[in-house]
Each structure stands twice: as structure tokens, then as C-alpha cells.
Design a protein around this nucleic acid. Structure first.
Lengths: 177, 177
DNA sequence: TTGACAAGACCGTCCAGCCGGTACAGTAAA
DNA sequence: TTTACTGTACCGGCTGGACGGTCTTGTCAA
């Protein structure tokens, strides 16, 4: 694999996420992405031969980032549980008021199957946490509460205040032990 | 050959939800809805002059159903807290393996603002629960865990088994007190 | 020379919204 | 009782436009 002039792939992926977030998931067209990335449509199609490939790229990018971030957190405080790392990571992700993954809605509209890797990852993560936590009930509550937090952030729903979110996180960390 | 004069509005709303669920949120077109509802495109446009009105109808229908169901639950066991009623209602909703609200993704793709009534309702519900619960931390955990459960159902993500969901619900009810 | 794009024309598809019709139902005058 | 009118509910073809994807031609750096 040759080194590109500039790394267009990542620019394009970032642009796609930007477009979905700012113009709405329904406005994620190839032209909009290309324009946003400062790339021609031909250049975009060169990197992602089809829109499906672009969606797939978004999912893979998202997952690899997530994995890296989680692993980094789990490593930096190895005494902590992975569950705690997951809680803190998610709390930080949701700190940012902008939903960074609106592109998921575009992907679902295109084809719901694009999300299967994400579902699989979540399942895998859950299994991993099960092996680590002794009280399944607590794990379930924590895991689902995180899911709820992430979901609210994704939908750009600001039901909770800043303080409430912090209280939630500390409550979850307490439950996680 | 037009057979019965029936309440087309509800038929159309149900058809829209069916189409989104079965053909995917991206396939929610006026023609598909009309065909599914056994109504012509003109007839559909007669009831809902624009696609936006149809989406709005879906949201309003969803909210009024939700309100009724919650009120019914809260009334039938008036000794229970509203939080408990909300937990049980959500558990029952998620029991059905079909994600009954895939149309939400279509609505978001059309315009994210369609969901503001739902967000407002959630906010309102949360405020109501705050007035009822003494421990804010417990409420937060419960509320978000329910949100997570609903979100997983919406995304058709089957991370939890049947037993795990039941355990989760009983754990939540215990936390809710 | 070749890989990595730029630029954009072009085509087939799809879809929302509009519009001119049509089949009733109710009413009310003749 | 008939006829004429009016409004409701619905039909279905049409069109303008957007969008995805392909293809061709050109550019420039390594």
C-alpha cells in the first residue's frame, strides 16, 4: 500500500461524520462528503468505491477507535476493572455535547446490517465483563445504564444536567465496585 | 374498487411502522406506505399532506400511546411508584423481539427535529420521577438503564438473553424500592 | 511511467408533491 | 321522488429534481 499524498481516507471519514452531524443524517450524500472533505467526487469514489464501503469504513473506524481507547484506559489503571474503564470512557465520550456518531443513522437508513459489527462488539464486550464481574445483576444495571447514556448522547437528548451525569457516573462506579 | 370507508389514518400509521420495521428505515417511502396500507398515493397524501406530517403523526401517535400505557400502569397499582410502572412498561415493550419503532430512524433522517416532542416528554417524565424519588442516584441509574434497554430494543440488538433481561428488571425494581 | 487523485459530464433510478379526475354521501330544492 | 349541487374521501398518472454510481480525461508528484 503506497502512501497517499495526504491521508484522504481519514479526511473523508471525518468529513462524513461532520456532514451527518451538522446537516443531519439524511443529508449524507457522496457529493456532500466529497465537498466537505475538500475532495472531488471522483477522489472520494477512488477511496471508497461505493457508499456502502464508506459506511463500512465509518463503522470500522469507529470500532477500532473504541477498542484502542478502551484498551488504553484499561491498561493505564490496571488495578481497575474493565467495567470501570468502560464507564469512564463512556462518560468522557458523552461529555462532548455534540453527538459524534450521527452517521450511524445514515448507516441504518442505508442498511441496518451495517451495524452488526457494532452489535457483535458490544456482545463481546459484555461477555468479557461477565467474566470479570461476580454480581451479574450489578453488571447488567451498569452496562445498560451506560448504554442509555450513550444512546441519549447519540440522540442529542439533553435530559440530564451536567451534575446529574456526574452523579450517575459516580453511582455506577460505586455499583461496579 | 373501494371497499370500506374505514379510518385510514390509523391504517396508514400502522403501515408506515410496518414498512420501516420490515423493509428498513431507509425504505419508508410514501409509495411503500400507501401500498402497504391498501391506499393509493393520493389517498395517503389526502390524510397526510406531506411526508413531514406523516412523521409528525407517527411521533404523536407513539407519544399518546406511551402516555396512556404509563398512566394505565400507574393507576392499576396506585401503591407502586411511577418509576416502577415505567420499568415494567418498558420491560414489556422490550419483551417483543420486534423493534416497533424503526420509523424513528426514518424520522431522524428526514429531520432530527421530529424527535423533539419525544425528548420533551422524556425530560418531563424524568422531572416527574425526580419529585417522587428521594435518592437521585438510584433514579438516575434506573432511568438510564431503562433508556439503555429501550435503545437496545430499538437497534434490534440482542446482547442480553431472556433471563438476563428479567434479572435486570428485578434488579432495577429493587433499586427503585 | 504510474499511482493518487481532480474535475465533471452523464445516466438510470427513485421519490415527493401536485393535479385532474372519480365515486360516493348528504342535502335540499323542485 | 327526482334532480342538482356540494363536500369528502380517494385514485393514479406525471414531473421536476436529487442522488448514486460510472466513465473519461487531465494533472502532478514520486
Amino acid at each position: 500500500m503506497r502512501v497517499p499524498r495526504a491521508n484522504s481516507r481519514e479526511k473523508i471519514l471525518a468529513a462524513a461524520a461532520d456532514v451527518a452531524r451538522e446537516a443531519g443524517p439524511g443529508s449524507l450524500s457522496l457529493e456532500a462528503v466529497a465537498s466537505r472533505a475538500g475532495v472531488s467526487k471522483g477522489g472520494l469514489l477512488y477511496n471508497f468505491p461505493t457508499k456502502a464501503k464508506l459506511m463500512q469504513g465509518l463503522v470500522e473506524n469507529y470500532l477500532s477507535d473504541f477498542r484502542k481507547a478502551l484498551e488504553a484506559r484499561a491498561a493505564e489503571a490496571s488495578r481497575e476493572s474493565v467495567l470501570s474503564a468502560y464507564i469512564k470512557l463512556s462518560a468522557d465520550d458523552c461529555e462532548r455535547p455534540k453527538p459524534s456518531a450521527s452517521w450511524m443513522f445514515s448507516a441504518i437508513a442505508e442498511d441496518p446490517d451495517f451495524l452488526t459489527p457494532i452489535k457483535a462488539f458490544k456482545h463481546q464486550l459484555f461477555e468479557r465483563l461477565k467474566g470479570e464481574t461476580e454480581d451479574l445483576g450489578s453488571l447488567l444495571v451498569c452496562f445498560l445504564a451506560i448504554e442509555g447514556m450513550r444512546s441519549m448522547n447519540l440522540f442529542d437528548s439533553d435530559v440530564l444536567s451536567e451534575d446529574e451525569r456526574k452523579l450517575l457516573v459516580s453511582s455506577l462506579l460505586k455499583i461496579a465496585g
